[in-house]
């Protein structure tokens, strides 16, 4: 029982980061029908910023906002340079464009920094734990969960209560009709990329605090987690994306602690197989978004 509770808390901590990533992926998919394989690059960019700042001896009070600003900036820049040119193109083209962006960004770091791992100092409290009864809780997990909850509440407020949120939801539901209402397509798409970058930036701060390092291809893992979580939740559903993130985090933690020793290193493999099974039984993900086939 205690062990399960322990897993639950660990899983929520991990799932929080995935939820933020998945929500960023889902926001972009909503307005552009683009599955962003370059989403993880926002964290890579943040990672190199953290590396540079850490070399200067800056503290995490400065590095944290720096990572977020870099992620938002990179998100907007990528939209401007690449994605704005393929708006309305076929899904095939959109998928490969984002795949191409992923490679260009990581190749630039390969070219101008180095292929090797760059490490930077992590805040000291990241590894601290505290006890509640017989539970051992990481300070880090607590911070992640609290910040994620606040971020999700703020995002909900943004989407539900502001005109920008209304425009974004309208554009995601029916882009043409939203434009007929006067929603500016440029602004709403850029806004979506900014929001997506902001969410990735916050997730990135945690991701980098935990890893304390970055490489040119460091974006692959967070990208995959975000994309898979969005897909588990049901592409196109923002609520589904958040749910998918938590489900993925919990599944990973539970499997890692429950699988027999021989298989435990293969946890990620097992998670993928489970996801494949989920798709076989629920092809549309956990939350279905209706897409009528027009004849």
């Amino acid at each position: 029982m205690i062990e399960l509770l322990q897993n639950l808390i660990d899983g929520l901590g991990r799932g929080s980061i995935y939820a933020l990533l998945a929500l960023g992926v889902a926001v972009i998919f909503g307005v552009m029908h683009l599955l962003n394989f370059a989403h993880g690059e926002l964290i890579t960019v943040g990672g190199y910023a953290a590396y540079a700042a850490s070399n200067q001896g800056w503290s995490w009070y400065v590095i944290t906002p720096l990572i977020i600003v870099c992620a938002v900036g990179a998100s907007l820049l990528i939209e401007r340079i690449a994605f704005s040119r393929v708006r309305g193109a076929s899904d095939f083209t959109l998928l490969l464009t984002s795949f191409g962006v992923h490679f260009v960004v990581s190749a630039i770091f390969l070219l101008y920094v180095s292929a090797s791992v760059k490490t930077f100092s992590r805040p000291r409290w990241v590894t601290n734990t505290y006890s509640v009864g017989s539970l051992n809780i990481e300070v880090f997990d607590t911070v992640v969960i609290v910040v994620t909850v606040i971020t999700l509440l703020a995002t909900t407020w943004l989407l539900q209560r502001t005109m920008f949120g209304l425009a974004l939801r309208g554009a995601a539901a029916d882009f043409d009709t939203a434009r007929l209402m006067g929603v500016k397509s440029d602004s709403v798409i850029r806004g979506a990329f900014a929001l997506s970058g902001l969410l990735a930036g916050i997730a990135g701060v945690f991701w980098l605090m935990r890893s304390g390092s970055t490489t040119p291809s460091a974006g692959i893992d967070p990208m995959l987690s975000g994309v898979l979580a969005a897909l588990i939740g049901g592409l196109g559903s923002l609520r589904g994306a958040v749910l998918g993130g938590f489900v993925l985090g919990l599944a990973e933690v539970l499997l890692r602690s429950r699988l027999p020793d021989g298989i435990a290193p293969l946890t990620d493999g097992v998670v993928f197989v489970l996801i494949a099974l989920l798709f076989i039984f629920r092809p549309q993900g956990l939350i279905t978004v209706a897409h009528a086939e027009r004849v």
Binding site: A82, A89, F103, L111, A115
Partner: peptide
């Protein structure tokens, strides 16, 4: 013209073709 230029070349080829000649 630096080491690993070929990786940038591949990525840019992918992007360029998707944007201008999918």
């Amino acid at each position: 013209f630096r080491e690993n230029l070929q990786t940038v070349f591949l990525g840019l080829s992918m992007l360029g073709f998707m944007i201008w000649r999918p």
